[in-house]
Design a protein around this nucleic acid. Structure first.
Length: 869
RNA sequence: GCCGAGGUGGCGAAAUUGGCAGACGCAUCAGCUUUAGGAGCUGACGCCGCAAGGCAUGCGGGUUCAACUCCCGCCCUCGGCACCA
């Protein structure tokens, strides 16, 4: 049977009838796929897993009376497209257009419910006009700024990169080792939204792992900033700590090599040469070398300068004002960009400081006395004796600083805070700091601002004009978009300027403010900018253009369901939330968060267990599968192969199994058809005599199960119960010669077409083409030359009757001492007394019970009976 | 090191509140049918055992009439973060 022909036929009819484009219903559902980057390799079966799932949901929601928005588009700017173009000597625009065509052709074969009128493309100037517009809004509010900091530089891609674009200190795109390079950059102040981004996570229906990843990435930590004074100087500098409670154990300070205090102290540092040499050496180290944990800690003391711990300073009375002097070190284990770039070192209670102190022979002062019971608080004490009686065996080592201790206890040797527990001490000490103006409570984040410039051609131009007189001037909104000029040579320059800098005609422009000579900004935006608002673009697209439309945005947002790969956890999903929160603050969108519910699809691995890749030659192209088995088979298989969010290996044999299943459905339809032609059954609603039979019970159980499974993304079990239902329908409707009476009673019952029709509805979200075909076979009436037919996709989703899902009989499990011994079919709702009577009479059981004394009998309603002897 | 997810047949996996472990599918085997085919149908299929029965959900304990499920302690795999003070 050629399913492919059937599929093509229905795809055409659906498109013509616009069967999905019903946007007027009161209930709405916005279901979104992460739009693909159209690579040259085309779509493989791993990509389609998510698309199939959203399509199942979209069709299911349509049948449940929702307006469903299910759009698709292309994320086509960015490095990969450009690198591909460079390699193959094709202009990126041409390459991208070609790839999009291929992708679209591939997608169309699946029979998805996309509304192609809403198709978007981030490289369309009508589209990126708004990407640029959003940038301007950020700029106008001071959230886009220029910076000259050293940033991550990929020597191979010849561009700067954001923190989020690195993997293990390497370029996420090409794998080259990243260098630090000082470069003029545009940066977005994402850190201003750190707290909001963190807060917003709370109410999102996202996988916990993704939320946790974002929390870690944002990296909030509560602590305090403390000011240390330099002895005999008016200089002060701050350190950040989360362990203020350990401050009396601080025996030295460490500043990062980048720290500016070093310059301020130059005249006082006795070993300046040595210090400078050390700083130069760390500069030479790559990020990877500096991050290497295995390596020993290094550092140099700033000789001749001392700092004074404010808790021992004269001004404060915390410990009696002995003006304790502590040495200052420069060491690269302290990061310049986090906190204040300086830390107070407490070797007794911090592993890193402890290592450093050991190496350089610095004093280690213990200020926490562990509680008496064993250090391992995770392990429950087995006895009172163990709990109270035994001293911490390592106590002396801890007190002497021989080992570091970072668990709970009480403070010792800490002035007025001695004896306090750690949490209380942190609180009191912070108060003391603030009262005596030596510092304050402080919250720090690991999150860094988004480095937003790329020194490359294939991206949205940053809409800024650089005027010598007026500085950075935004392009007037009415002059947007700033179109990316079409050029022949778009090789990256490597100079820190983009290839656009060479296009004099484009670069030179009048300043919009003063009218004087000025130049355009030649940096372009990163790949992830276009995708940071695309879910809005679908809503505001109108006749191939885009017009900001708050009403439409309000109608559809937030996205009800967003499906895509887990790899976007801390990149796209964070950026998009950042932009959205900003747009919310300037009141151009109405929802606080863009994506209410998120689902991650698991990776599909190749049959050899590796990732699908051109490199390994193990890519499975959906076209090839559809050609042989049809799209519905592929759809069904991808939904059946395993839990949706789990990585799983492709198995072509499994595809055949699904095909077999659909073939059997097809055969049964033919059977029905033949019977119908012969007038052997009437198309009637099922009549009373079939009510309450086993098949009906199963039908209602299945409706319930599949409805719940689809809602919960358990497509694999949904399909499995669909198969079970079908097996029984097939069985009940096959020739009487088969022994079906045992299962469903009346072998001579006429065809139960209503049951089968319900089955088709349940099947339709998964296998839309074939269920449509079969549906029309069984429902259309072409006798008088006119085909009367209503699409199965316009049918209502079946409802189950709670009364009918209960079985009349069930198999009572009989256990003796918890072990299965026998089973017996009894009426549902049987009482313990009745059950005991039946059970004890059974031969197998009575034999077992000979000479035994029954201790008790456990009875679980409608389930089992357990005789304890 | 920290955080998160997970560990069940030959394979992908199921298993409501603790209640028949292995549903459904793949592969395999046997038979039928057929006819060449990678087709169809019927049946078997966790391990040991002829059987009765016993043993089985990463390992070791515990709670319970009853544990894949709950508690304690380990081991392993995958993903993320990683000198963030």
């Amino acid at each position: 049977m050629n399913f492919k022909k059937i599929e093509k036929k229905w795809q055409k009819i659906w498109e013509e009838e616009g069967i999905y484009k019903n946007y007027q219903r009161p209930k709405k559902f916005y279901v979104l796929d992460m739009f693909p980057y159209p690579s040259g390799e085309g779509l493989h079966v791993g990509h389609s897993r998510g698309y199939i799932a959203t399509d199942v949901i979209a069709r299911y929601k349509l049948m449940n009376g929702y307006s469903v928005l299910h759009p698709m588009g292309w994320d086509a700017f960015g490095l990969p497209a450009e690198n591909y173009a460079l390699k193959n000597k094709i202009h990126p625009k041409i390459a991208v257009d070609k790839n999009i065509k291929t992708f679209k052709k591939q997608l169309e074969k699946f029979g998805f419910t996309y509304d192609w009128e809403k198709e978007i493309n981030t490289t369309d100037s009508n589209y990126y006009k708004w990407t640029q517009w959003i940038f301007l809004q950020l700029f106008k509010r001071g959230l886009a700024y220029e910076s000259f900091e050293p940033i991550n530089w990929c020597p191979s891609c010849k561009t700067g990169l954001a923190n989020e674009d690195l993997e293990d200190g390497k370029c996420e795109r090409c794998g080259s080792e990243i260098e630090k390079k000082p470069l003029r950059q545009w940066v977005l102040k994402m850190t201003a939204y750190a707290e909001k981004l963190l807060d917003g996570l709370r109410d999102l229906d996202w996988p916990e792992s993704i939320k946790e990843q974002q929390r870690n990435w944002i990296g909030r930590s509560e602590g305090a900033e403390i000011e240390f004074r330099i002895k005999n100087l008016e200089l002060r500098f701050k350190v950040f700590t989360t362990r203020l409670d350990t401050i009396f154990g601080c025996t030295y300070l460490v500043v990062a090599p980048e720290h500016e205090i070093i310059k301020d102290l130059e005249l006082r540092i006795e070993n300046l040469g040595e210090v400078k040499k050390y700083i130069d050496e760390t500069k030479k180290k790559s990020e990877i070398q500096r991050m290497d944990l295995a390596k020993e800690k290094t550092g140099v003391e700033l000789k001749g300068v001392k700092a004074i711990n404010p808790f021992s300073a004269e001004g404060g009375s915390a410990s009696g004002g002995n003006n304790e002097e502590i040495p200052i070190y420069v060491a690269d284990y302290v990061l310049g960009h986090y906190g204040t770039g300086a830390v107070m070192a407490v070797p007794a209670h911090d592993e890193r400081d402890w290592e450093f102190a050991k190496k350089y022979n610095l004093p280690i002062k213990c200020v926490i006395k562990p509680y008496v019971y064993p250090v391992n608080l995770n392990k429950h004490p087995q006895s009172d004796d163990e709990f109270w009686g035994q001293k911490n065996p390592e106590l002396n080592k801890i007190l002497s600083g021989e080992i570091f201790y970072n668990k709970d206890g009480n403070l010792i040797d800490s002035g007025q805070f001695t004896e306090m527990n750690l949490e209380k001490a942190r609180e009191k000490m912070a108060k003391w700091l603030e009262e005596n103006k030596f510092g304050s409570r402080k919250i720090n984040y690991k999150l860094r601002d988004w480095v937003f410039s790329r020194q490359r051609y294939w991206g949205e131009p940053i809409p800024i004009i650089k005027c010598e007189k007026c500085g950075n001037v935004p392009v007037l909104e009415k002059n947007l978009p700033v179109k990316l000029p079409n050029v022949k040579s778009y090789e990256p320059t490597g100079t820190g300027e983009s290839p656009l800098a060479n296009i004099k005609k484009w670069v030179n422009i009048k300043c919009p403010k003063c009218g004087g000579l000025a130049k355009r900004e030649t940096n372009t935006m990163p790949q992830l900018s276009g995708s940071s608002w695309y879910y809005l673009a679908y809503l505001i697209k109108k006749n191939k253009k885009y017009e900001w439309n708050k009403k439409e945005i309000k109608k559809w947002l937030p996205v009800n369901l967003y499906v895509g790969g887990v790899e976007h956890a801390t990149r796209h999903l964070l950026y998009a939330r950042f932009w959205h929160k900003f747009l919310y603050d300037i009141k151009v969108v109405s929802a606080k968060e863009p994506f209410k519910k998120l689902m991650n699809q698991g990776l599909i691995l190749a049959e050899d267990g590796r990732k699908m890749s051109k490199r390994w030659g193990n890519v499975v192209n959906p076209d090839d599968i559809i050609k042989i088995y049809g799209a519905d088979t592929l759809r069904l298989y991808e939904m059946f192969m395993g839990p949706f969010d789990q990585a799983i290996m492709w198995n072509t044999d499994g595809v055949r199994g699904m095909h077999r299943f659909l073939q059997r459905v097809y055969k049964l339809v033919q059977n029905f058809h033949a019977y119908r032609q012969a007038g052997k059954f009437e198309v009637e609603s099922y009549n009373a005599k079939f009510k309450n039979d086993k098949l009906e019970t199963l039908l209602h159980q299945t409706i319930k199960k599949i409805t719940e499974d689809i809602e919960n993304f358990r497509f694999n079990t949904a399909i499995s119960s669909l198969m079970i239902l079908f097996n029984e329908i097939e069985h009940a409707n096959s020739a009487p010669s088969r022994s079906l009476s045992s299962r469903f009673g009346n072998a001579n019952a006429p065809m139960r077409i209503e049951y089968f029709k319900t089955f088709l509805k349940l099947l339709s979200p998964f296998a839309p083409h074939l269920s449509e075909e079969f549906w029309s076979d069984l429902t259309s009436d072409s006798d008088n030359g006119r085909i009367k037919y209503k699409s199965i996709h316009r049918e209502k989703w079946p409802k189950y009757n709670p009364k009918l899902i209960k079985e009349k009989q069930f198999e009572l499990v009989i256990q003796i001492n918890g072990k299965l011994r026998d089973k017996v079919s009894v009426p549902t709702g049987i009482s313990q007394k009745e059950a005991e009577k039946i059970v004890l009479k059974r031969q197998k059981i009575s034999e077992e019970l000979v000479g035994e004394k029954i201790k008790k009998i456990i009875f679980v309603q409608n389930r089992l009976i357990n005789i304890v002897i």
